[in-house]
Every structure is written in C-alpha cells, then in structure tokens.
C-alpha cells in the first residue's frame, strides 16, 4: 500500500557517504547509501542527526533531492556560515563516513503524479531541492504532466542543477524552466532579472483554471510573496503547497 513508506515508527538508520558533488560555491550534494531504505516520494525529507564526542546531538531536516531509486538518496545541503550542522555536512564529511538519518518523513509537500492540469513549481534559492526531486521523479516515470519551474536565484552561479535542468527541458516532454536572477545577470541575459512578484507570476504561471497544484519552496519571505501573489491571481489556496526554508536549516 502507498502508506508503507510513511506509516509507523521511525528508526534512525546508518547512512554511509558514497559520493560528494559540489554544486555551487555554497551547496554540495551528498549521496548516501542507506541499507533498508524503504523508498520515498518526491518532496519528502529526512532528519539528520549528528552526535559529538561528548554526546551532544543536533538534528536538522533536509529535503531529499533524488528520485526514489534503490537504497541511495541525495541530499543537497546549503552551507550556512553560522550554522551548526550544515558546515559539517558540506566541509567535513568524507566518503566512507557514516551518519544517522531517519525518514522519509512528510506527506503534505509531495509530488502527485496523477494531478490533472499544469503543475507549477516555484523555487527560491536552495528551495529548488525538493522541486528537483519532483522533476527527477517525473522524468524517471516518463510522465508528461505539463510542469513549469520558475526558479529565482541571485545569479547564474547560484543556480543549482543548471545542466541537468537544461537536459530535462530539452526532452520536450512538457517540462520547462524559467529563471529570474535577482542580483546579477550575465551579459546578454534574456531571462527575468527581478524578484518574483504578482506580475511575474501572471506572466510565467498557468491561469487558475489550468493549475493542478503549485509547489512553492524557499526562504519564508519568498514563500509568503509567491503564495499571496498566487492567491491574488485567483488560484485556490488549497492548490498552493508551501515549504519554508528557515534559518533553523543551519
């Protein structure tokens, strides 16, 4: 049954680092091998627990970046300079290291492959991570659900998964990407160059009669602006799923 991956008690599992892939100057993808991993749905998270030599423990929740595919999962972690957990994950972890994680958790912010209409994904910064899992899951299933990603980043160098997103869009199977670069734009940039506002959502997003569901993920002010903009454009609040990345992500 569908619930087997999400129901029941959660156990901490040992997860071995098998690959480290730098994405941007501030983000890194960590691939874990998790024996017994039950699979997950795109958009779900894991809780990561680190234990210091003196027994002190710190826990954080991270979105899974990969589609469900065997015992391996990818987490893409943004390094927060004053964070307690993320600098360890991005700077100190080496392949072969083992950490504890539990999951998958969450059932609210997950890709529903049977949705009717257009799916609108709106990412702010590292808020792309769970939306990338959705784009990857969609591609893995050869889904043709019309899906548009609006991705806001500070600059082109801050765009995570840029090459892979270009490949996904090049399949011409109903998935496309629109970028807006809010701080610096390269010479000759023909995409958007401003923060996401109601006008930009109107230009890029589906009209309300065509929206199956919108998934919005990013920092709290970004999510608030996008969600209220979508409501202003006449979209039903129940079709707008949000996930805020707060400073507790550290």
């Amino acid at each position: 049954m569908e619930g087997t991956a999400v129901l029941g008690r959660l156990n901490w599992r040992a997860a071995e680092v098998v690959e480290l892939t730098p994405e941007t100057s501030q983000t890194k993808t960590i691939t874990f091998d998790v024996p017994g991993w039950p699979g997950h749905r795109a958009g779900q998270h894991v809780d990561v627990r680190l234990t210091a030599d003196d027994g002190y423990q710190a826990e954080r929740s991270y979105s899974i970046a990969s589609a469900a595919d065997g015992p391996r999962i990818d987490l893409t972690v943004e390094r927060l300079d004053d964070g307690e957990v993320s600098p360890y994950l991005t700077d100190e972890l080496r392949t072969g290291d083992v950490i504890e994680l539990r999951g998958p958790v969450g059932g609210y912010f997950v890709w529903n492959p049977h949705a009717e209409g257009t799916v609108f994904l709106v990412a702010g910064g590292s808020g792309i991570v769970p939306l990338m899992a959705m784009a990857r899951q969609r591609a893995l299933e050869s889904s043709r659900i019309p899906t548009r990603l609006l991705y806001s980043a500070r600059s082109l160098d801050d765009v995570i998964y840029r090459d892979e997103l270009a490949e996904l869009a090049a399949r011409v199977d109903g998935f496309d990407v629109v970028y807006t670069l809010t701080r610096t734009q390269p010479a000759g940039w023909d995409g958007y160059g401003r923060r996401v506002d109601t006008d930009l959502l109107r230009e890029v997003g589906p009209v309300s009669s065509e929206l199956a569901v919108a998934f919005v993920c990013g920092p709290t002010p970004f999510v608030e602006a996008v969600a209220s903009g979508l409501v202003e454009l006449g979209h039903e609040p129940a079709r707008i799923k949000t996930e805020r990345f707060g400073p507790t992500g550290g």
Partner: peptide, 26 residues
C-alpha cells in the same frame, strides 16, 4: 512575517515519532 517561521512540514519527523504515523496530511 517572521524569519524564524517555518511550516508544519518541518516537524514531520518529530510528529511521526510522537504519534506513530505520518501527521503532515492530518
């Protein structure tokens, strides 16, 4: 609006630990 604000999703693991089932869709 508060920068320290998240949403219920962020507590999915803790809620599941307490209630023994997925709670973000409750």
């Amino acid at each position: 609006m508060d920068a320290l604000m998240l949403d219920g999703n962020a507590a999915a693991g803790l809620l599941q630990e307490i209630f023994g089932s997925e709670m973000t869709t409750a």
